[in-house]
Computed example of a mutant assay.
Amino acid sequence: MDQIGSRVYFDKVTGDVLVKTAERSGVVHETTVDEDFTRYTALAERVRETVDYIQLEYGQYAQDFAECNGYRVNPETRTIEFSYPDPNAPEETPVYRKSLSEENEELREQLAATNRDLQDIAEHVFGA
């Protein structure tokens, strides 16, 4: 079964998202950028050189897209930044940041490194 991830088209200067294509699976055809520019009005109305895109893997950021209340692309780093609702301040202006899934993965890696360091220290101090 073929799986095609989303494509996120954005304004090169502002990072504003113009179009996020749907991810697809099954017997599917991956569209070209040229096809997308003819298919989506928001792209067809633009000068091509002002638009860039990020090709996502199938399922990439699925939970982040489901939980966020907005997203954009950082034009300098070409990474997607998300804003998440604050239940204590629902009317607050969105604050964009890296995805929670990426932050969680970084924290897991830091925790694993800390645990390895503690294990090394324990072995050195206690000869365990």
Score class of each variant (00 low, 15 high):
residue 69 N to V: 06
residue 111 L to N: 10
residue 46 R to V: 00
residue 109 E to V: 00
residue 95 V to E: 11
residue 102 E to N: 09
residue 116 R to C: 00
residue 108 R to V: 12
residue 46 R to F: 06
residue 67 E to C: 02
residue 79 T to V: 11
residue 76 E to T: 14
residue 95 V to Y: 10
residue 94 P to V: 02
residue 96 Y to T: 07
residue 97 R to E: 07
residue 85 P to D: 09
residue 85 P to C: 11
residue 108 R to T: 10
residue 96 Y to F: 13
residue 57 E to M: 07
residue 91 E to H: 04
residue 54 I to Y: 04
residue 95 V to Q: 12
residue 101 S to G: 13
residue 52 D to K: 05
residue 54 I to E: 00
residue 119 Q to I: 11
residue 59 G to Q: 04
residue 60 Q to V: 06
residue 98 K to A: 08
residue 86 D to W: 09
residue 119 Q to S: 14
residue 57 E to Y: 10
residue 103 E to A: 13
residue 88 N to E: 15
residue 102 E to D: 15
residue 86 D to E: 15
residue 57 E to C: 05
residue 70 G to F: 06
residue 117 D to M: 12
residue 55 Q to R: 10
residue 100 L to C: 06
residue 83 S to M: 13
residue 97 R to T: 11
residue 116 R to D: 03
residue 91 E to P: 02
residue 106 E to F: 05
residue 114 T to S: 07
residue 99 S to E: 02
residue 106 E to L: 12
residue 58 Y to H: 10
residue 56 L to S: 04
residue 96 Y to K: 04
residue 87 P to L: 10
residue 61 Y to R: 06
residue 72 R to S: 01
residue 89 A to Q: 09
residue 70 G to T: 07
residue 53 Y to T: 00
residue 67 E to S: 14
residue 75 P to F: 11
residue 76 E to L: 10
residue 71 Y to L: 00
residue 87 P to I: 14
residue 99 S to V: 02
residue 65 F to N: 04
residue 52 D to R: 13
residue 99 S to Y: 00
residue 87 P to G: 14
residue 112 A to W: 04
residue 118 L to M: 09
residue 63 Q to T: 14
residue 51 V to K: 06
residue 58 Y to C: 08
residue 68 C to T: 10
residue 79 T to A: 03
residue 82 F to W: 04
residue 101 S to H: 03
residue 51 V to L: 05
residue 59 G to M: 11
residue 109 E to S: 05
residue 101 S to Y: 06
residue 69 N to R: 15
residue 114 T to W: 03
residue 93 T to P: 02
residue 93 T to E: 15
residue 115 N to F: 10
residue 84 Y to N: 01
residue 97 R to N: 11
residue 80 I to C: 07
residue 91 E to M: 08
residue 114 T to A: 09
residue 71 Y to K: 04
residue 93 T to H: 11
residue 96 Y to C: 05
residue 110 Q to S: 08
residue 77 T to E: 08
residue 52 D to M: 07
residue 77 T to I: 07
residue 97 R to C: 07
residue 100 L to F: 05
residue 68 C to Q: 04
residue 92 E to C: 08
residue 66 A to K: 15
residue 67 E to N: 13
residue 52 D to G: 12
residue 52 D to I: 00
residue 56 L to K: 03
residue 60 Q to P: 09
residue 103 E to I: 12
residue 119 Q to E: 13
residue 65 F to V: 01
residue 60 Q to A: 09
residue 86 D to N: 15
residue 115 N to K: 13
residue 74 N to L: 01
residue 120 D to E: 09
residue 90 P to W: 12
residue 105 E to S: 01
residue 80 I to Y: 01
residue 48 R to P: 00
residue 47 V to C: 01
residue 95 V to A: 12
residue 119 Q to C: 15
residue 79 T to Y: 00
residue 112 A to Q: 14
residue 104 N to C: 07
residue 113 A to D: 08
